[in-house]
Write a protein that binds this DNA or RNA. Structure first.
Lengths: 362, 362
DNA sequence: TGATCATGCAAAAACGTGTCTGTCAACGCG
DNA sequence: CGCGTTGACAGACACGTTTTTGCATGATCA
């Protein structure tokens, strides 16, 4: 009776259970649970007393027991696409890192933690972790994992509008068509006569929508499409494709690259062919990387705002988990941001000293 | 009796329990558990029958119940340092992304999943998730979270040797001193007379060891140290510090930058001051980014091999969790790799066409 | 044939919570 | 004084597994 820490059962030494707290405080288990969770109707004196005893014993409620009882684990899956046996692809490093960072913060602020779960995980890993819901990044056409999750009744929110008729709970995406059209107009305004595109061969929605928008724009303004496609997950194919694009007989005088490394690849290719940027070649690429602020010349980039996307996705998911009737629509479109730098302006501002980049948020 | 799916209790509809499977298969609960886990001694016929019935009912064992019973959750914490309220710092993007990627793969291959847990999480989040062990990245001097985890008896493996007397289970690190000395020798061999250092103001082990090695090298060869320190977590301070370093009266003719963005920052600063690289200024920086293969000129980088570190850390941790007497020493040193490019060679090779970069592993 | 033993399976005890149901006293009111 | 009501707490159960124990049944051996 004097030593309440040692429960009658040989639970792991050093771990006090709720029974020990109840015994040490001289109350019942119910009272301890209610006091710690602020649930029942107890006099403040009892509440304080129980809390103090719990602290003194170093009591930590068992996450497994709580999950089993309540059905909520406080865990959110972060499903990333896989290429080969690696979780996420090379071209998405900066995007993924920023998105995951924001998602982690947002989840944490609401008491949830993120579990990294590649889409092609062994099945037993998926079923070995109790998830309250899942974020899927760029779900592919008929992803069996996502379908199964939805069928199990788990909330699923996707980054990128779902392909096909994938019945996700909600999704967040940019307006990729508008972004591409905006860039093409921007380049045309800067004097581009023939705009090329560096795109991918994969079938994900981002690539598809962007390429389609490009083709439609070309048709509208009466320009012949000039583009090269390459497998975006292959880090060395990009440089080759950039080279091919600039080696064509109908060489473009402006290029938009859909993937993060395209900027440096195109710049290097341009140098190889003696093309000056932006005088002979205008350049824009889609990237979250800050290196493009300090290249020679600095390159105009399109930011997809991964931090806002990561935050929005998690908020939507947790709202769904907790049954909050979300004020937001279940389909949320995040605006993109075009960061205009020297590479896309025919008349570069006379300044050659680029100011230090700003740490500005989102 | 005919409809076994509906258990007597109103469990979540659609979720079949082990009882339902037992009833449907006409066997006991024990038999189902043994059959699915391959544990008891059962005739193959029974085993196959039970498995088939389980599949037909779409049975998925409850992760929470299993964790409660066995004490193992299959979850590994990935603890990242925080600056401000954001999980990981700006200068470590590429490193973290690669390291996390490798760690995720390695964990997955052994049936574990990773949970992202910033060090400064709210306490309730930490205690709300059942962890089998934790990976800590660059644990600070007296991290209360790590101490508590160790005190709870949880295995902890750190990326970066632990500062102070932090009693971690094992750690993995590079030999930072040897790496810095190697780079300085490399630069001196290339003709550098006064080598500068771009370093950080924080007190983490990496910064400390590297700076100390630099100072010792200077003392050994009789050169006055020339260095600038800046808060590495501030993305815009780096450019300013690079500028300061090259504006000094005792301007160095070679610089090593400890952090990822230093390369482009130093390159931009050099251009501002009309310094040619590598003719007037030799450059090396520590980075995992591939952009430095295609800058003008390509910049020599030091890779810390984050993929090998991530893999090693997870292996060590899981070995500890499963009680495997690890063959490896508990302190593991991963060699660094110096990727020599134009920026650190006084006589650049005559080729101006840089070959496409290789997708080679680790 | 009876004792021994391996085999195939069932019953039941945990794991540590949250929560539903009940008890007991005090109290107000008719 | 009897009775319903309310506050403060205790007892017991259920969540869904894994695992230990134990009971039959048939085979083997002295």
């Amino acid at each position: 009776m004097s030593r309440a820490e040692t429960s009658r059962r040989g639970g792991r030494p050093g771990r006090a259970g709720i029974r020990d707290v109840a015994a040490a405080a001289g109350v019942s288990i119910t009272t301890v649970s209610d006091a710690l969770n602020g649930k029942g109707r107890l006099p403040d004196a009892t509440r304080r007393h129980v809390r103090e005893v719990a602290d003194r014993l170093g009591y930590r409620p068992s996450a497994a027991a709580r999950t089993l009882r309540t059905g909520k684990s406080g865990l959110i899956g972060l499903t990333v696409t896989t290429y080969g046996d690696e979780p996420f692809t090379f071209t998405e490093f900066a995007y993924f890192a920023e998105m995951a960072r924001a998602a982690t913060s947002a989840a944490l602020a609401r008491g949830y933690a993120l579990v990294i779960l590649p889409a092609t995980s062994r099945h037993d890993v998926w079923s070995n972790v109790a998830l309250d819901g899942t974020v899927v990044i760029d779900p592919s056409d008929q992803d069996p994992v996502v379908s199964e999750l939805v069928r199990q009744g788990l909330p699923v929110v996707s980054d990128g509008r779902p392909a096909g008729a994938l019945p996700v709970t909600a999704w967040v995406d940019n307006d990729h068509e508008a972004a591409v059209l905006g860039i093409l107009d921007h380049l045309a305004d800067a004097g581009a006569r023939r705009i090329g595109l560096l795109t991918g061969t994969s079938t994900d929605t981002y690539t598809h929508l962007s390429t389609t928008a490009y083709l439609r724009w070309c048709e509208r303004v009466g320009q012949d499409p000039v583009y090269e496609a390459y497998p975006a997950h292959d880090p060395c194919a990009g440089a080759v494709a950039a080279d091919r694009l600039l080696a064509r007989p109908d060489r473009p005088d402006a290029v938009y690259g859909l993937f993060d490394p395209n900027g440096t690849d195109l710049l290097a290719a341009a140098r190889r062919y003696g093309l000056r940027v932006p005088e002979d070649l205008l350049l824009v690429c889609c990237s979250e990387s800050t290196v493009y602020a300090n290249t020679e010349p600095p390159i105009t980039t399109l930011s997809l705002k991964p931090r806002r996307i990561g935050t929005a996705v998690v908020q939507l998911l947790i709202d769904a988990i907790e049954g909050v009737e979300s004020e937001q629509p279940v389909e949320q479109v995040i605006p993109t941001e075009l960061i205009v730098r020297t590479s896309s302006q025919r008349r570069p501002p006379r300044t050659t000293v680029s100011p230090p980049r700003s740490p500005e948020e989102t």
